[in-house]
């Protein structure tokens, strides 16, 4: 299968919008699940898109670019991974594994875009000192250009020139590597989970991790069912916490500074 120009156009536009949305309005378009789904729609294979997106999303579950640290961009990864999976006909697992190095490479371009915006900051400061307050505000909006281009250009180029390349790679990959990559794709979600376990207060809440695992592994409860039990336990804990702090009124006045849990 070859890619159509309108498919290239739509996927490219999506990548530019998604990164804007992820940084500002946050309606989930930057999430790999959503990107994979949309790419699947565009490429005419929603199932593949969902699996590529779902696998990649698990890799960056709780991660956000806090304080401006760049993270693997599996939105772009999901778009390209889905497109190449459909084009090569090698299946969703292949697409997901292919997307991993793409997502990792995108870190560098994200850094570059944020670096470009530094010039806009300087220019805004210069404009303000000249009394051009309104023109200075425009610099903020121009920041969208480097950020969006940092996704749109690589997506566009990869779709225009990459298909043949990926096809060649696929045709020359030995079976042991191909299948090995599939297995790798299966265990990669463990990383996203491990990152979260490092971030969330695990020691205090280890019991709840066990409960969730038990529900799914032994009782085969779907994740949504486990989430409901988790919610129930969270509500109970919240109620108890409120009762506790209602008694010693205004006992804790100054513990700012460690608002971060744990």
């Amino acid at each position: 299968m070859t890619i159509q120009w309108w498919q290239i156009l739509l996927i490219t536009l999506y990548s530019g919008f998604a990164i804007y949305d992820g940084n500002n309005t946050t309606f989930g378009t930057v999430k790999p699940t959503m990107a994979g789904f949309v790419a699947g729609l565009i490429m005419g294979d929603v199932q593949t898109g969902l699996i590529v997106g779902g696998t990649l999303n698990l890799l960056v579950l709780g991660v956000g670019n806090f304080g401006g640290s760049s993270m693997p961009d599996y939105m772009t990864g999901a778009l390209l991974g889905t497109a190449f999976a459909v084009l090569s006909g090698k299946g969703a697992e292949f697409g997901a594994t292919l997307a991993v190095p793409i997502g990792l490479l995108m870190i560098q371009l994200d850094v570059l875009a944020r670096f470009c915006n530094t010039f806009l900051q300087h220019h805004a400061e210069k404009l303000v000192s000249e009394g051009k307050l309104k023109s200075a505000t425009h610099m903020n909006l121009y920041g969208i250009i480097p950020t969006s281009l940092s996704r749109m250009l690589p997506v566009f180029l990869a779709l225009v020139f990459g298909s043949q390349f990926v096809q060649d790679v696929v045709n020359n990959l030995p079976m042991w590597l191909m299948n090995g990559l599939k297995t790798a794709g299966g265990i990669l979600p463990a990383l996203g989970i491990a990152i979260l376990l490092r971030y969330l207060p695990l020691k205090k809440n280890f019991a709840f991790l066990l409960v969730g695992f038990f529900l799914a592994a032994f009782l085969k409860v779907p994740v949504i069912g486990a989430a409901m039990i988790g919610l129930a336990m969270a509500l109970i804990a919240f109620g108890m916490d409120n009762q506790k702090s209602a008694q010693p009124a205004a006992a804790d006045t100054d513990d700012e500074g460690d608002m971060e849990d744990e």
Binding site: L200, K204, G212, V223, A226, A227, G230, A234, A237
Partner: peptide, 18 residues
Amino acid sequence: SAANILGLTVIGALIPSV
């Protein structure tokens, strides 16, 4: 801190599921 409980329960369930 309550939401962390929900989060960790879900993660626990996720491990064998995905």
